[in-house]
Design a protein around this nucleic acid. Sequence first.
DNA 1: GCGACAG
DNA 2: ATCTTGTCGC
Length: 276
Amino acid sequence: MSAPSDDLIRQWESEQASLRQRVLEEDTEDWQREPHFSGLERVGGVDLSFIKGDNVNACAQLVVLSFPDLEVLYEDSRMVTLTAPYIAGFLAFRETPFLLEALRRLERSQPALLPQVVFVDGNGLFHYREFGLACHLGVLSGLPCVGVAKNLLQVQGVSKSQEHQAQIAALQRGGDSFPLTAASGRVLGKALRSSDGSSKPVYVSVGHRISVDTAVRLTHACCRYRVPEPIRQATVHGDRCWEDVSPWEHGRPNPARIKVEEKLPSAAVLRDKSCF
DNA sequence: GCGACAG
DNA sequence: ATCTTGTCGC
């Protein structure tokens, strides 16, 4: 996949600016106002997983979990071929089409299982142009979405400063958070200590049809470990997708056969040595 | 040249 | 995103 032209980048920026106007940053659902989210029964999670040397083929995953028990109700795995390269700030153009497809398959086959909110692996409003993957998927699907990033995107004045590190150190228990404030003063999201056992926070931001505070509260309610269970389950099921494809190349070889394989030069080594 | 760079 | 090994602790 080659680098996109400046022209395409400008087109993407313009599309983001256009779609951005359709983002709803407030709570639109009754369950979002409830102290314990009563009325919320299904939470979704989406993710794409890759293997080492391949940026083109991926496994697109959609899972739906029950709430508040977080048991898997539905899962969909699909091998897909990506067309857009990864460029920070334009992740949605790479991943959204396949995540939307998965949601549409579910809507067509089992509409009663459609999630009432979707957790997305990546940022929402916490983005260069305030329109990350979670917003993109939210607007195009119409579903409430929450963006959860595992790494801090240094944007709009938010940075890994001493102050930032100090704020992280001050997060005592799961549920504690602090705002990610842009230079403009606008709160783009929050850093959240997602569980008692994890000192490294996750970065939560609004995708669509939910407020920041509700997004943070809900994320905490969906965390058994650092990564929210819907996203975690999507990732786990995504990895299984590869076991049927190339068991010894996906980075987690079968222990029974690795003893044989590990002694042999890899295909890549053979190729580099012109031994084929 | 150096640092940043969600996934 | 993925790679990679051990290590420390409950």
